[in-house]
Nucleic acid binder design. Structure first.
Lengths: 229, 229
DNA sequence: CGCCGAGTTGACCATGTTCAAGGTGGGTGG
DNA sequence: CCACCCACCTTGAACATGGTCAACTCGGCG
């Protein structure tokens, strides 16, 4: 388990980032290819980078879960996305990060130095295509999320969230949540109480079962899909 | 004025899309360079493409205003963005459009055939960089919008909207709205009544002046910025 | 003049928030 | 091994924000 109090770099390979498989879901074999990027560990709730900081690196998540989020001055938080193993995050336009990234669980990331692949200097056509695909999928995801935030009720939001989790889970009927109720609330644009109440409601209606707070069994996928509209 | 009942193609240039200035804010001189793309006119409220349709073209807006939006089965609509002269829209991952585009006002667009620049065949490095920059800015904008939709009150949403409009306007204190209250509501995740009430409220508080429904004068920018939090 | 679509306003209502109290369970130290 | 603790979660009651429904105004146009 990664319990280091600060990120620790392992390998400092340079432009070997250009290796083609970067944006696919393969996680580079770190020992076999120490040159692909620097491996860093972050323990739970640690900040990986913060909104406004210089975007020196971007990251590929090797293990664990990461949230990317924005804050308002008074502390209100909106989580833009949760990232899982294989996901890229922190690759943004401009020189500064436009959102923060924090470790939801202990996690391992591979950091790629962004300056080394100044976009204007990319010679590798495959890489630039992959980055383009990544950016466009990020845009699509954010737009999908806007629809959720702007036009869906609490129960629709929660139902959709559960279905999305189920899709990512190996067992599509049993979901183990990596995040707290507060994380879910900040992702769905709700309060922690509303999330909790909505889950209880779904359990009372026999749509889900909650053996423990982080363990959710989807008993009635059809109803859930109807609710998610 | 463009009043044609269906889009009309003017020129059908092919891969001349690769001309560098595409993603900058210059609008190609249509007569001088008929080969840059096909010019099409859409009259107010006409659909330019619809969610789910094959994404054969992407577009650069020459004049007018366009909204890109998503719909739920029951008709609820979320507008993802308004696009103005010079903006690119409809450039999306995958083969199908993930949102619809509609003309807010009569408008002129330049359509570029997407198949002709199959991403895997882009030979022009500058173009792929520009598309990458476009995609990343689109992602950033969508994420910013998520924060607005998920975590801001009606008055904060409206204040932010007005400031964004002012920024785009030549006269930063007098805004002429191209869109209806319904469009604004669907962009901000509110109802038409709430938008109207909030604007009236702002007028009563001497923050704005509403000489007509589509004409807004920002009298008190400081207060407006405070409200936009 | 009268119609029609867009916008405004009011009264009522519902959804979700706020505030406050209590429960639960995993981890630590005695 | 047990007791305690603390963070996380749940629940309840009161409240507020924004939604719904309906009536009305305004301005442009036939």
């Amino acid at each position: 388990m990664a319990l280091h109090s600060s990120p620790r770099e392992f390998a400092l390979g340079e432009h070997a980032i250009l290796a083609g498989a970067l944006l696919k879901n393969e996680i580079p074999e770190i020992k076999a290819q120490p040159q692909v990027g620097s491996v860093q560990y972050f323990s739970q709730d640690r900040e990986i980078f913060s909104e406004g900081a210089a975007a020196e690196y971007f990251y590929k998540l090797a293990s664990g879960v990461v949230r990317t989020c924005k804050f308002l001055a008074d502390g209100r938080r909106q989580i833009g996305a949760f990232h899982f193993a294989g996901d890229i995050f922190g690759f943004e336009p401009g020189t500064d990060h436009i959102l923060s990234a924090e470790a939801v669980t202990d996690c391992t990331v591979i950091a790629y130095r962004k300056t080394k692949l100044d976009i204007s200097a990319i010679s590798d056509r495959l890489l630039s295509q992959e980055l383009l695909a990544f950016a466009m999928h990020g845009m699509a995801r954010a737009q999908q999320h806007s629809l959720l935030l702007g036009r869906r009720s609490a129960i629709e939001k929660v139902a959709r969230f559960l279905l999305d989790c189920a899709e990512k889970s190996t067992d599509h009927r049993n979901v183990t949540l990596a995040m707290t109720r507060q994380d879910i609330a900040d992702y769905l644009g709700l309060t922690i109480e509303t999330v909790s109440r909505t889950l209880s409601q779904l359990e009372r209606d026999n749509v889900i079962d909650l053996p423990s707070a982080r363990q959710i069994r989807l008993c009635n996928l059809n109803t859930l899909e109807d609710l998610a509209a």
